[in-house]
C-alpha cells in the first residue's frame, strides 16, 4: 500500500482526539501517509496535525462548516490529484456522512468500522463487526482507491514527532463547489464530563433509572467520583431521560474504555455491540439472569438505587 490520505476531523479549534486512530492505522500500512484537513482558519489545527504526518490543508471560507456535499467534493479532488490508493478516517458520524459520500464519488470500495487487519499474500484483509457485533467478518476491498473507517478504540495514535512535518496549503476553487446544502446551526452539548468515546472509564445507566434527575444523581454522581464519562442504554434515550449523544450501542457509539460500569442495564444485543470490547466490564443489576452478566468480569446483583450511593460514598471517603 503506497499513498495513504488520512482525513482528520476537528471542531474548528482542535483535532478530535479520536482522529489519531486513523493516523495510527495508516502508519501500520504505509510510510507515505499524508493528512488532509478541510475548514477555515486551519493554522493552529494544521500545526497540531503536523506532529503526526505531512499535512495538506484546504483552507477556505466556503468550507467553514462541514457540509457533506462540499467537503466530499474537495476530498475527492484531493484524493485524485494525490493518487491516493487508500483513504482513511476514524469512524464517527462525521466520517460516516462525509467520508461515505466521498467513497460514493470514488468508486465505492469502502469498509466501515474496521477493528483489525492483516496482510496475507499481499492482500489487505480487514475485519469488521456485522449484525450488531454478533458476527466478525473478514473481507477484501476490490478496486482503488480503497476507503476505510476504523473504530476509534481499535488503533492508537502514533507518538508526536519532535520536528513537525510540512504543511502545504491547497488552492480551493469555490465556484465549483456544490451549493444545495446550507448549514444552519449546531447545538453542541459539551458538558463538563469527558466524551463517552474518549474516556478511560464509562459509567453507563439503563432502564433501572426512572428519570433524568436520578440518572444525573446516581450515574452522573458516580462518574464524577471516577473522572468518567456517562453513557446510556437506548431505552433511556428513547424515554427522553438521556440525550442521544450518550447512547452506547450498535446505533449509538461504540466504546472500549479501560472500565465500563453498566448500572441497571439488562444487556440487549445492540447495547453489547457498543461496549463489549471494553477492557474490564462490571455490572450491577437486580436481575441475576440479566444477559449483561455474561459479558461482565464482575457482577453485583442488587438495586442500583441502593448500591450506587454506597459506591459513591466509599469513593468519596477514600
Amino acid at each position: 500500500m503506497n499513498k495513504v490520505l488520512v482525513l482528520l476531523e476537528h471542531d474548528g479549534t482542535t483535532l478530535r482526539p479520536s482522529s489519531g486512530s486513523a493516523i495510527g492505522f495508516a502508519r501500520e500500512l504505509s510510510d507515505e501517509v499524508t493528512a488532509l484537513l478541510l475548514g477555515e482558519d486551519l493554522g493552529a489545527i494544521a500545526a497540531e496535525a503536523a506532529k503526526y504526518a505531512p499535512v495538506l490543508t484546504a483552507d477556505h471560507e466556503s468550507l467553514s462548516q462541514n457540509v457533506a456535499d462540499r467537503w466530499a467534493h474537495v476530498i475527492t479532488e484531493v484524493a485524485r490529484s494525490q493518487n491516493a490508493e487508500l483513504i482513511v478516517a476514524t469512524s464517527t458520524t462525521w466520517a460516516k456522512d462525509i467520508v461515505g459520500r466521498s467513497a460514493g464519488l470514488l468508486g465505492g470500495a469502502m469498509a466501515s468500522d474496521v477493528t483489525d487487519h492483516e496482510i496475507t499474500d499481499g492482500q489487505l484483509r480487514l475485519r469488521r463487526p456485522m449484525f450488531a457485533g454478533a458476527v466478525n467478518a473478514t473481507l477484501i476491498l476490490e478496486g482503488s482507491p480503497k476507503i476505510i473507517t476504523v473504530c476509534p478504540s481499535a488503533y492508537n495514535a502514533p507518538k508526536p514527532a519532535d520536528i513537525p512535518f510540512l504543511i502545504e496549503t491547497l488552492s480551493v476553487d469555490a465556484s465549483t463547489l456544490p451549493s444545495a446544502t446550507r448549514f444552519e446551526s449546531l447545538d453542541c452539548k459539551k458538558g463538563a464530563r469527558p466524551d463517552v468515546t474518549e474516556a478511560h472509564i464509562v459509567v453507563s445507566g439503563g432502564r433501572a433509572f426512572k428519570n433524568a434527575e436520578d440518572f444525573e444523581k446516581y450515574v452522573g454522581g458516580l462518574a464524577d467520583q471516577l473522572g468518567a464519562a456517562t453513557g446510556s442504554s437506548r431505552a433511556l434515550v428513547d424515554a427522553g431521560i438521556t440525550p442521544n449523544s450518550l447512547q452506547v450501542g450498535q446505533t449509538g457509539k461504540i466504546v472500549a474504555p479501560e472500565l465500563y460500569l453498566a448500572l441497571g442495564i439488562s444487556g440487549a444485543v445492540q447495547h453489547l455491540a457498543g461496549m463489549k470490547n471494553s477492557r474490564v466490564i462490571a455490572a450491577i443489576n437486580q436481575d441475576p439472569d440479566a444477559p449483561i452478566f455474561e459479558f461482565a468480569d464482575y457482577g453485583l446483583v442488587g438495586d442500583v438505587y441502593k448500591e450506587v450511593p454506597r459506591l459513591i460514598e466509599e469513593l468519596n471517603g477514600s
Binding site: 484483509r125 454478533a134 458476527v135 473478514t138 476490490e142 459479558f295 468480569d297 464482575y298 457482577g299 446483583v301
Partner: peptide, 23 residues
C-alpha cells in the same frame, strides 16, 4: 467492491465473578 472471506460468531470470552457488596 467487497469480497467477504469469512465470518465468525462472537461469544463472550468472559466469566463473571459475582460479588456481594459494593465494597
Amino acid at each position: 467492491r467487497i469480497r467477504l472471506l469469512g465470518m465468525e460468531l462472537i461469544d463472550s470470552q468472559r466469566t463473571c465473578e459475582k460479588v456481594t457488596t459494593a465494597t
